[in-house]
């Protein structure tokens, strides 16, 4: 059985890229911690979640090589997120539009 075919086409990310990604993650961590000391009201949670999502995305794209995966991997990486959004979204819709608070 031949094994050479898949190792050749496989993408190997260089350490340089990894270190740049890591540095970016660290910078964003510092930013979130710093921002948390300033009061923006409701914006705080938005900023925190946006930064977290950017961090999560680059972890997935580079550390987890999602960038180099086929479309079916993308589908199964993203579809659960949309289901999670659905679960949160509809449960909140129910909880906060009830006329009688139990």
């Amino acid at each position: 059985m031949s094994t050479h075919s898949h190792t050749e086409e496989r993408h190997i990310t260089g350490n340089k890229t990894y270190i740049i990604v890591w540095a970016a993650l660290m910078v964003m961590t510092v930013v979130t911690v710093y921002v948390s000391y300033i009061n923006f009201g409701m914006l705080n949670i938005v900023i925190a979640l946006v930064v977290a999502s950017v961090k999560a995305s680059i972890v997935a794209l580079y550390f987890m090589h999602l960038k180099f995966e086929d479309s079916i991997t993308w589908v199964f990486a993203l579809f659960p997120l949309s289901l999670l959004a659905l679960l949160i979204g509809m449960t909140i819709t129910d909880t906060f539009t009830r006329t009688i608070v139990p």
Partner: peptide, 11 residues
């Protein structure tokens, strides 16, 4: 990455 801001860093 999500737990940290959600639990520790609430404005």
């Amino acid at each position: 990455i999500y737990l940290f801001p959600l639990l520790y860093l609430i404005g």
